[in-house]
Design a protein around this nucleic acid. Structure first.
Lengths: 221, 221
DNA sequence: GTCTATACTACGATAGAC
DNA sequence: GTCTATCGTAGTATAGAC
């Protein structure tokens, strides 16, 4: 569908850089990462990075956009699917959690992208817009699902924006919470069992928090 | 209650430094702030900072501990208060929100403290422990409230740890979400009206999510 | 497309005068 | 307790050979 090929037989240098940068930026944030660490870990000289990305900020935004692209792919499938509003919202939560777990760098990068306002050095506007546009599109579709559910009487009369914020907190923050989260939960956050449990906890919370009448937890699946 | 005086007629240099450092660290994070900016904004030379704080990491942790101390003061009052478990939990949410709003630097600093693992240069262990201890104490008391509420049948059989994570996400993340949050909500996050609305939204969510039987939203207050 | 070399700036931290 | 001066390092980014 695109003019430039996106599949590669062997991981190109560009993808190698993105992988390494994603790991580092996730852990330390934009300002906390030096390009030398990225270059070394990618097996390249420092200067070579600038042949693939115009600046550090451009690299950071490329990482963020790739992360959001993966989430978008998962959620788009679910949002376009069938089922009641409640069923689709459950699947949104589960897919969002799956996206956090697939690459554990995701929650921290996404959380940073959401709450850190532009600490970026102003220059990387073009690549910033790609990310912003993708984010806005995703948010808009998620809000629509909630609003339609409210209009259809499937959800109580809750604010879609507030509900979305709560949902982001419940999913993204939780899987970003690292050592604190592990200490609180008394075990790893990303084990299959912990992930299954978190999904159940959030979905149950939403059902009793969003649905007007009888509990729906005993339903299919 | 303390040997050293904590009240000051005029703001000492130490407090001035803490104030400006809190603002900067909240916005840019630990790695994103230079001590020169802090010193300039405080009206001091760069070197003078080191007479008040052993290192940048020590300053950062002093800021974090002061933030957590303010939250602790609010929540301790509420946790020691009377009322049913549900009433006390409502007041915990409202007090936590009040703490975020009182100093809008709070949510971002707290969020960073919770999800950024030790990017700190290892040396500031003593002042780190003060913060960790205060945090552990607070978390323990919050968990206890939820667990007791579950045991007393006031809450459904939910995990205290999971519930606490969801709560933190709903309060701390929301008020840390800056431009993204404002865009999503369609207005400021910290206006009196927005704050009132967020409290209501979370408390309602919790009631329908935690309480077993009939909705309790019509109750007193 | 990767390298070496370099420019320029900022960083955290220390020494020592006042 | 604040200052100036300085140290050593690391930061982003560019120039130009290969």
């Amino acid at each position: 569908m695109e003019l430039t090929k996106t599949r590669n037989a062997s991981p190109s240098s560009r993808e190698k850089i993105l992988d390494v940068a994603e790991a580092r930026f996730s852990q330390r944030g934009f300002a906390g990462v030096g390009l030398r660490q990225v270059a070394d870990a990618a097996g390249l000289g420092k200067s070579s990075l600038f042949h693939h990305f115009r600046s550090k900020a451009a690299l950071y935004l490329a990482v963020l956009d790739r992360v959001l692209e993966r989430i978008d792919a998962r959620l788009s499938t679910v949002l376009a699917g069938s089922g009641t509003h409640a069923e689709r919202l459950d699947r949104v939560v589960e897919s969002l959690v799956d996206a956090m777990v697939e690459h554990p760098t995701t929650p921290r990068l996404l959380l940073r992208a959401l709450f850190e306002d532009d600490d970026l050095p102003e220059d990387a506007m073009p690549e910033a817009e790609a990310f912003e546009a993708r984010l806005a599109s995703l948010v808009q579709r998620l809000q629509q699902l909630i609003q339609e559910g409210v209009a259809a009487g499937a959800f109580r009369a809750a604010s879609a924006a507030h509900t979305l914020q709560t949902l982001i907190g419940a999913v993204v923050y939780h899987f970003a919470s690292g050592e604190f989260g592990e200490g609180l939960m008394g075990g790893p956050l990303f084990s299959a069992e912990a992930v299954r449990r978190r999904k159940l906890e959030i979905v149950t919370f939403i059902h009793h928090g969003l649905l007007p009448g009888a509990p729906t937890e005993g339903e299919g699946s």
